Amino acid sequence: MRRLVLILCLLAGPLAAVQPNEMLDDPALEARARDISKGLRCLVCQNENIDDSNASLAHDLRVLVRDRLTAGDSDAETVDFIVDRYGEYVLLEPRATGSTLALWLAGPAMLLLGAGVALAYVRRRGRAAPEDARLSEDETARLRDILKE
C-alpha cells in the first residue's frame, strides 16, 4: 500500500505544475503553449522544463508564453521573445548557431583528435623495434638448452 501511495505521489508531481487558472480555453492554443513550454528550461530548477516545474518563475514564463500566443505570435516568435529576454540558456536544446556551434562541434572534434593521437601512438610504437631487442646467437643457443631440459 505504501508503495502505491509513493508511486502515485511521484506521478502526480509533474501533473500539478501547470495550474488550471493558467490553461487557455482554446485547446489548440493550449497544445501549442504546452509544446513551447516543454522546450524551455526553468531558470530555477535548471534541468527541468517550465511545463513540469512548480517554481514561481516557471509559472511566470508559462503565463508569458500563453500571453504571447493569445496576442497572435507564432511559436517561433514566442520562443524568440523569451530567448531575447533570458538568453539562449533558457532553451533546453540550444540552437547550433554562433558561439554554440563551437560547443556542438567541440565534442566530435576532440573525439577525432584523440583517436588520431591514439592511432599515431600505436603505429609509432609498433614500428619502433630496437635492434638490441633481438637475441644474440649465444642467447638463442642458451634458450634452446633451457627449453630442452
Rank of each mutant, 00 (worst) to 15 (best):
Arg34Asn: 14
Leu24Gly: 03
Asn54His: 12
Glu93Gly: 00
Ala55His: 08
Asn47Val: 07
Arg144Ser: 03
Leu92Met: 11
Asp60His: 01
Arg134Ile: 11
Arg62Cys: 03
Leu29Arg: 08
Leu4Cys: 08
Ala33Lys: 01
Glu77Tyr: 08
Phe81Ala: 09
Ala109Cys: 07
Glu149Leu: 06
Leu40Tyr: 03
Thr100Pro: 01
Asp60Leu: 10
Ala129Val: 13
Asp35Val: 00
Lys148Asn: 14
Glu139Ile: 00
Ala12Ser: 14
Thr140Val: 07
Asp132Asn: 05
Pro130Glu: 03
Arg124Pro: 03
Ser56Tyr: 12
Ala31Leu: 11
Ala76Lys: 12
Val79His: 02
Val79Ile: 09
Ala12Tyr: 14
Leu6Phe: 15
Ala133Arg: 00
Tyr89Lys: 01
Pro130His: 03
Leu103Cys: 07
Met23Tyr: 07
Leu29Thr: 02
Asp132Trp: 12
Tyr86Ser: 03
Arg3Gln: 14
Leu15Trp: 15
Asp60Trp: 00
Ala31Trp: 13
Glu77Gln: 08
Tyr86Asp: 04
Ala115Lys: 00
Leu92Ala: 06
Ile82Trp: 01
Asn21Met: 11
Leu11Glu: 10
Leu64Arg: 09
Ala12Gln: 10
Leu40Ile: 05
Asp60Phe: 07
Leu57Arg: 08
Ser53Ile: 01
Leu29Asn: 06
Arg62Met: 02
Gly39Glu: 09
Ala28Thr: 15
Val79Leu: 00
Pro14Glu: 09
Ala141Lys: 12
Val79Glu: 02
Ala133Thr: 12
Cys45Ser: 09
Arg142Tyr: 08
Arg85Gln: 12
Leu61Phe: 11
Ala55Ile: 02
Ala33Pro: 02
His59Lys: 07
Leu113Ala: 14
Ala141Met: 09
Pro130Asn: 07
Asp35Met: 04
Asp84Asn: 11
Asp75Lys: 07
Asn21Ile: 11
Met1Ile: 10
Ala120Asn: 04
Leu113Asp: 11
Asp67Ser: 14
Val83Gln: 00
Asp35Pro: 01
Pro130Leu: 06
Leu105Lys: 11
Arg2Ala: 14
Asp73Lys: 04
Ala129Ser: 13
Pro27Ile: 06
Arg32Trp: 04
Gly98Met: 00
Ile36Ala: 01
Glu88Lys: 02
Val83Ser: 02
Val5Ala: 10
Asp132Gly: 00
Tyr86Lys: 00
Asp73Phe: 08
Leu4Trp: 15
Asp52Pro: 05
Ser74Lys: 05
Leu43Ile: 02
Asp80Glu: 05
Ser56Leu: 08
Trp104Val: 11
Arg85Trp: 10
Arg32Gly: 04
Ser53Asp: 04
Ile7Arg: 09
Asp25Glu: 15
Gly72Val: 04
Leu11Met: 13
Ala115Ser: 13
Leu11Asn: 14
Glu22Asn: 01
Ser37Cys: 10
Thr70Tyr: 05
Pro27Val: 07
Asp25Val: 09
Leu113Trp: 14
